[in-house]
Write a protein that binds this DNA or RNA. Structure first.
Length: 738
DNA sequence: AGCACGCCGACT
DNA sequence: GTCGGCGTGCTC
């Protein structure tokens, strides 16, 4: 009876996905034993007018509630019979909510796939599997005459010692049916989980560097550590990952692998599937809601061994956590750029600490922050310097184009170099980080330019579609035939984009095949894969493209890489620009060459003496990073200082400024003098998509001082009267100041 | 974020 | 006389 009274006075604190930095108290449902409600379960609760799905954080006694008991409403339904998030998962999410000053309910929501966010049941549809029958084991694939698809599939089954999940066989539907009808394979249920996880095919023999990296991480399994694996292109980073994963798998541990770009996931997935006899799931934006739910639950329940995913996969619960790998750790796509602006790299490290597992960060061009953490002995540096087959590093050349005649951005020296490379039957890769035909259209008569009406930016000419397009807000219009201002002047393209370069290259090299890879040519699903296939099979001579060339794909037959316009990257206001540019140069350079064909990298510049370029090229990435870090130390910039950026936008220029003024007053009143309050200033792009944008930068030499100030100020700032009229957000550890 | 309530312009 | 504009205020 006494117990019953205690139960009756319990209230449940729930995180609800609304932009409010607080929890909501509810009474337990009438018919339910409150003891059965556990933190980490989802509940459906009446909220305002409707129902919302929230997550139970804790149960407390009624007397602890700050809320008038008359206002308390009752939980409508407890959705889960068991907690979906463990206490450690909840601990991480609470930490992230505090650190990023983002509402806990919304942070929780990012931890769930959409289906669970919407309150759908957490029921895992177990995979059907297929495996060989005795007859299937004894059939020789060649005997299946005139059925090459069936031959291939039977071979696939015979190569694997275990059942194959139906979800992995979707491309083989008809052959599958045929083999089943012939009695060579049969359907089984969830057989995969009964098999021990292990390596299926042996890896390569590691060189001493690789062995050291493997041993170092493997010996640390079961405890927290951060290792930075710095490996140049072709140094076998993935092989090191796989050997470490193999060891973790053999101990029954799960591995979370985070990647920056989904375009890289299929390659890695394929290699992993060939290598490991263990269930692998993927989690990224190309997967639909039910696929993501399936992958998430398989990890949460311990059926899957490896998850390959992007940033959003970071919070997936792990039944038996063993290791977190974050590949291409320098990539800025690990930082979420809207809403809950977390850094997947930093949160992965916080998560590993809570879970007591190692984190492995990999990159050929580590972030300066991570390199600094190596010197502070927070991370262990594991270097891979030997390229496969002892391939030589590419040779860099600064090509001075001052006063040189240019043909659509190509100097004569470069054209000659391209020609002689093509003559040798080798491929050329040209990099220009600007898509479209030309970045702006100008009137030769009156000076009118194709300005975007909603942004402080110009509209880009897309010649093939005959349209002007703003790359910042997406607005577009047909390419004007006459000048909208003077009606008489001649309209001309100004500047260069990949589309224009492609045209010029086609004129210069009419007998060579050119492939352009940018957002415009690869938007259609599978088109990128198609182009990559063409490149690898030697059907392309010149590869031209943007950013996406710098990521992952290696082109062994490319021996000449040219970066057409390096100068525009040299004069940015953002202190990260040098780091990003150096990473881009090294990454693009890494696409080229192999053992028998040394790569050459040409940088066209009007700044051949620029210290950024000369240091990078003469002394290398590491030396460049050291110098840049010295400069940041002197300026108190990250990682020697800690920043937070308060961003605001509004329909007019006044409301955002009034909000920031009020925020400055709050901050000044609370600042113990340890934190610099810089601004308010207009954002680097003062207007975007019709919104007026301003920002306020906070910087402190000590992380704790900055966060102490934020802890005190943010509750007040979010309650400011002026906050209602604008859209604002706080970006802790901002990576790009736009 | 939603979704209410709440006071001032052009419409059946 | 109403329908509806989006300004402010609340959500356990």
């Amino acid at each position: 009876m006494a117990n019953c009274n205690v139960s009756r006075s319990l209230i449940v604190q729930i995180a609800i996905p609304v932009p409010l930095q607080r929890l909501f108290d509810y009474l337990p449902p009438e018919q339910t034993d409150p003891q059965s409600i556990q933190p980490g379960m989802r509940v459906s609760v009446p909220f305002g007018k409707g129902l919302k799905t929230g997550v139970v954080l804790q149960l407390t006694s009624l007397s602890d509630s700050q809320i008038d008991p008359k206002k308390l409403r009752r939980i409508e339904q407890v959705v889960d019979s068991e907690a979906l998030l463990s206490p450690k998962d909840l601990q991480l999410l609470k930490w992230a909510s505090r650190y990023y000053h983002h509402p806990l309910g919304e942070v929780m929501a990012t931890a769930f796939p959409a289906a669970l966010r919407q309150g759908k049941p957490a029921i895992l549809q177990r995979d059907y599997c297929y495996s060989l029958t005795e007859q299937g084991r004894q059939t020789i694939p060649m005997d299946l005459k005139r059925a090459s698809k069936q031959q291939a599939l039977l071979t696939l089954f015979q190569d694997k010692p275990f059942a194959i999940a139906a979800t992995e066989l979707t491309q083989h539907k008809t052959a599958l049916k045929a083999l089943q009808d012939k009695g060579l394979i049969h359907k089984t249920l969830g057989e995969d989980s009964k098999l021990a996880w292990k390596e299926q095919s042996a890896g390569l023999t590691p060189n001493p560097e690789q062995q050291h990296a493997i041993d170092s991480v493997v010996s640390g399994l079961g405890q927290f550590s951060v290792s930075l694996l710095q490996g140049v292109t072709g140094s076998g980073k993935t092989e090191v990952y796989m050997q470490i994963i193999a060891e973790a798998l053999s101990r029954g541990l799960q591995i979370l692998v985070l990647l920056p770009e989904i375009t890289l996931t299929p390659q890695l997935e394929q290699r992993f599937r060939q290598r490991f006899a263990a269930p692998i799931v993927c989690f990224h934006s190309k997967f639909n809601d039910s696929q993501r739910l399936h992958a998430w639950l398989n990890m949460q329940q311990g059926h899957a061994a490896i998850m390959l995913g992007t940033r959003s996969a970071l919070f997936t619960p792990l039944k038996n956590p063993g290791l977190i790998i974050l590949d291409e750790e320098h990539d800025s796509s690990f930082k979420q750029q809207e809403g809950f602006r977390f850094s997947a790299r930093d949160v992965a490290i916080a998560r590993a600490k809570i879970l007591n597992v190692p984190v492995l960060l990999g990159s050929a061009t580590p972030s300066f922050e991570s390199l600094f953490n190596v010197t502070r002995q927070r991370y262990q540096l594991l270097q891979l310097s030997i390229r496969a087959g002892n391939a030589a590093d590419p040779v860099f050349q600064l090509l001075d184009i001052r006063n040189k005649p240019m043909q659509a951005g190509l100097s004569e020296a470069l054209i000659t170099a391209i020609r002689s490379t093509l003559d040798k039957g080798q491929q050329v890769l040209l990099f220009l980080n600007r898509r479209g035909f030309a970045p702006v259209q100008i009137c030769h008569g009156c000076g009118w330019v194709s300005r975007c009406g909603r942004c402080d930016a110009n509209m880009v000419i897309h010649a093939a579609e005959r349209r002007l397009r703003c790359h910042h807000c997406g607005s577009e219009q047909p390419l004007p035939k006459e000048c909208p201002a003077c009606k008489t002047g001649e309209l001309q393209p100004l500047g260069l984009g990949t589309e224009r370069i492609e045209q010029t290259l086609a004129e210069l090299f009419p007998n060579n095949a050119i492939i352009r890879l940018d957002k415009d040519t690869t938007q259609r699903k599978g088109s990128l894969e198609g182009y990559l296939e063409q490149i690898h099979s030697g059907q392309a001579d010149i590869i031209l493209g943007t950013q996406m060339l710098a990521k992952g794909h290696h082109f062994p037959d490319v021996t000449l890489v040219a970066i057409l316009d390096i100068d525009s990257g040299l004069f940015s206001v953002d202190f990260h620009a040098g780091e990003k540019l150096a990473q881009m140069i090294v990454q693009v350079a890494g696409r080229a060459g192999r053992a028998d064909k040394r790569g050459r990298v040409v940088l066209q510049t009007r700044q051949p003496q620029h210290p950024l370029l000369t240091t990078l090229i003469e002394k290398g990435y590491q030396a460049f990073a050291e110098i840049a870090l010295q400069e940041r130390r002197q300026a108190g910039l990250p990682p020697f200082g800690y920043q937070a950026l308060l961003r605001v936008q509004g329909n007019n220029a006044e409301s955002p400024q009034q909000f920031l003024q009020a925020a400055v007053s709050v901050l000044h009143a609370l600042n113990a003098g340890k934190t610099q309050i810089l601004g308010p200033v207009t954002a680097p792009m003062a207007r975007r998509a019709g919104q007026f944008r301003f920002q306020l930068l906070l910087q402190s030499p000590q992380r704790k001082d900055l966060h102490q100030l934020l802890d005190q100020a943010m509750p007040k700032i979010s309650k400011l009267r002026q906050a209602g009229k604008v859209r604002w957000s706080l970006d802790v550890d901002p990576v790009d100041l736009y």
